[in-house]
């Protein structure tokens, strides 16, 4: 399949899925599932919690090797694991992406189902994800200078991609209210090459 065919088939599939969800799909609003008042206690039993949850397993560590769709992972405590990517696996590396974006040496956090052969069939993979409490030490043109404990960290900012949340409000792409000296919770993607962090979400004022 050529790249062009791949793109056009992806667009076609999106169109199909859009029709599925927008045309004739169930609208779930506050009333659709029954109220959340006390009467709801007598209502038909709600679906149980995710039956797969108890069977889920977690893998974290650094990717030491990539064999096709299998990632060899060396855990932080010296343990080893194999993570199998599937067509249904969601892959996050700063944003939803594909397996092609994963590199050897990346950090990984994966959730999935253990297979009989010892591999973990991943449902979701987060690559290089970091979530840390920081203080804003400087604001540059395309970057934030952050301190996390003793560490000085450069946070790369991509206008339009990096989002901020002020005092618990909804996420916005407006970063103009960030101030030097603020405490900020930063969710981002670590860049192993220069040890900086691509800031995805920065929350201040809570």
């Amino acid at each position: 399949m050529t790249a062009h065919q791949g793109i056009s088939s992806a667009v076609g599939r999106r169109r199909f899925l859009t029709r599925t969800v927008v045309g004739g799909a169930t609208i779930v609003g506050a009333t659709a599932l029954g109220g959340i008042d006390a009467d709801a206690a007598f209502a038909a039993p709600q679906p149980s919690l995710d039956p797969a949850f108890a069977k889920s397993s977690f893998v974290e560590g650094r990717i030491t090797r990539i064999d096709g769709s299998v990632l060899q992972v060396l855990g932080s405590h010296g343990d080893r694991a194999c993570v199998q990517l599937t067509n249904a696996t969601s892959i996050w590396k700063g944003e939803p992406t594909t397996a092609a974006a994963i590199d050897t040496g990346d950090g990984l956090y994966a959730r999935g189902v253990p297979m009989p052969d010892g591999t973990v069939a991943a449902d979701a993979v987060w690559v290089n994800i970091v979530n840390m409490a920081t203080t804003i030490r400087g604001i540059g043109k395309n970057r934030l200078h952050l301190s996390h404990g003793h560490h000085e960290i450069v946070g790369n900012v991509f206008p339009g991609t990096t989002n901020a949340s002020y005092a618990g409000q909804a996420l916005t792409s407006d970063l103009s209210k960030l101030r030097i000296g603020q405490h900020a919770q930063v969710l981002g993607a670590w860049r192993p090459s220069d040890d900086s962090v691509d800031v995805v979400r920065i929350s201040v004022g809570h």
Partner: peptide, 20 residues
């Protein structure tokens, strides 16, 4: 509530998104 209703089925994180 929609998320609560569908969460027993959802296993992955966000796979794709688009606007139409």
């Amino acid at each position: 509530l929609a998320w609560q209703a569908a969460s027993p089925v959802v296993r992955s994180g966000l796979v794709d998104h688009w606007a139409e």
